[in-house]
């Protein structure tokens, strides 16, 4: 069951969106400027929800107080996830800035 859509131009737009996150303005140079077959895979925002969540991440503004581990446990529970990780806990008991990833 695959709906027809312009995977090629949506894919191109999505790659530009990846680059925009951190202001990466290095150009893409095409060797084979060919279409991609919409029957295989998904342009990431089109993934079915379970896949979307499994391949997703949350840039979370962690409130001061709870540790990153605690926050990850909450998020996991809220989303009924089996696996979730987060980036950067070097000093577990100390409130950190932000940045949790789920997966």
């Amino acid at each position: 069951m695959t709906e027809e859509y312009d995977a090629t131009s949506e894919g191109r737009k999505f790659i530009e969106r990846i680059k925009a996150v951190c202001g990466n303005d290095r150009k893409l140079h095409f060797k084979f400027d060919e279409p991609t077959d919409p029957r295989y895979g998904y342009v990431p925002p089109r993934r079915p929800l379970d896949k979307y969540i499994n391949y997703g991440l949350i840039v979370l503004d962690k409130p001061p107080g709870p540790t990153s581990h605690e926050v990850v446990a909450w998020v996991k529970k809220m989303l009924n996830l089996k696996r979730a990780g987060h980036g950067g806990t070097l000093e577990p008991p100390i409130p950190r800035g932000r940045g949790a990833g789920i997966s």
């Binding site: 999505f14 996150v21 949350i58």
Partner: peptide, 14 residues
């Protein structure tokens, strides 16, 4: 939900 969760692909920006 699709707005607060973003595709993990965004992490390879740089």
């Amino acid at each position: 939900l699709r707005r607060v969760i973003v595709p993990g692909e965004l992490s390879v920006c740089h």
